[in-house]
Computed example of a mutant assay.
Amino acid sequence: MAMKSSPLVENKLTEIKVIDPQVTAPKLRKPHHVGHRQRLKAKFDRRGEAAFHDYELLELLLFYAIPRVDVKPIAKDLLTKCGSLLGVFGASAQTLKEVKGAGESVVHILKLVHTLIGRSMQENLQGKTVLQSWHQVIEYCTARMSYNQQEQLRLLFLDQKNQLISDEVQQVGTVNHTPIYPREVMRRALEVNASALILVHNHPSGDPAPSKADIELTLKIQEIGAQLGIKLHDHIVIGKGKHNSFKAMGLL
């Protein structure tokens, strides 16, 4: 004898959905940056830097510092914060960390690249007559010092042929002052057997105009150097992407 199901059971049965194995659920959408990294790398390999905005080149570098994250906003924020690629590489760790997403790994890779840029440019000066490679000297000093947030004194010691013997940071000061000791400058020049030197210091304010104190100290160093047979060729003041030369200004 056939048994009839109750209305309650029939209602429950109609609520059960039969899943057709041939019908697949829609795929979950991947984050938009998935695949972007490979596409950007391939574009660089294919077309080179000319096809890229600055933020895209910075993105490529940040890929190696931050895995599996969309780094485009970080790259753009770094450029906005620091003003330029050189500003990003030259910025202090503290400044870089003020950008959301820029942690220790980002700071590390940016400062490493900044060091490599400086080393390669310094290497390019070795064995050359510095006074005949003046544009390279300015580019080198700008890359090394332009965005430092503390004043520092850099000394370029030259031999009799005006070739670079040594490049040294002698003093690091505050945001607006570096203690310069003329006798210490000359003592070091004698130690490395220099025949001439170039002074370089930066102004974190960005304004490369020399102060009265800068001028007085420079003339004192020139005077002591003349007594010792060490010529002061120039004193360069580096601002943010700008510079002033004492020689060009008629101060030396």
Score class of each variant (00 low, 15 high):
residue 1 M to H: 14
residue 3 M to Q: 13
residue 3 M to G: 13
residue 3 M to F: 12
residue 6 S to Q: 08
residue 7 P to D: 08
residue 8 L to K: 11
residue 10 E to P: 00
residue 11 N to F: 12
residue 15 E to M: 15
residue 15 E to Q: 15
residue 15 E to F: 13
residue 18 V to K: 14
residue 19 I to T: 14
residue 20 D to W: 11
residue 24 T to D: 07
residue 25 A to R: 14
residue 30 K to D: 07
residue 39 R to P: 00
residue 48 G to H: 09
residue 49 E to L: 08
residue 50 A to N: 09
residue 52 F to Q: 03
residue 53 H to R: 14
residue 55 Y to F: 06
residue 58 L to G: 03
residue 58 L to W: 04
residue 60 L to G: 04
residue 65 A to G: 02
residue 65 A to W: 08
residue 66 I to S: 00
residue 75 A to F: 06
residue 79 L to F: 07
residue 79 L to G: 03
residue 82 C to K: 04
residue 88 V to I: 11
residue 91 A to G: 04
residue 91 A to Y: 07
residue 98 E to T: 14
residue 99 V to E: 03
residue 103 G to C: 06
residue 103 G to L: 09
residue 104 E to F: 09
residue 105 S to D: 05
residue 108 H to V: 00
residue 115 T to D: 08
residue 115 T to S: 11
residue 116 L to W: 06
residue 118 G to C: 12
residue 119 R to L: 13
residue 123 E to A: 11
residue 123 E to K: 11
residue 124 N to E: 10
residue 126 Q to F: 10
residue 129 T to I: 13
residue 130 V to N: 01
residue 131 L to P: 00
residue 132 Q to S: 10
residue 134 W to E: 08
residue 139 E to K: 07
residue 139 E to T: 10
residue 142 T to S: 12
residue 151 E to G: 02
residue 159 D to P: 05
residue 159 D to A: 12
residue 161 K to M: 11
residue 167 D to T: 03
residue 171 Q to G: 00
residue 175 V to L: 05
residue 176 N to T: 08
residue 177 H to L: 13
residue 178 T to A: 14
residue 183 R to H: 12
residue 187 R to V: 01
residue 189 A to W: 02
residue 192 V to R: 02
residue 193 N to E: 14
residue 194 A to E: 02
residue 195 S to D: 13
residue 197 L to N: 01
residue 198 I to N: 01
residue 213 A to M: 12
residue 214 D to C: 02
residue 214 D to H: 03
residue 218 T to L: 06
residue 226 A to T: 09
residue 229 G to H: 05
residue 232 L to C: 12
residue 233 H to M: 10
residue 233 H to K: 10
residue 236 I to A: 02
residue 236 I to F: 09
residue 241 G to W: 09
residue 243 H to V: 02
residue 245 S to E: 05
residue 247 K to P: 00
residue 249 M to C: 05
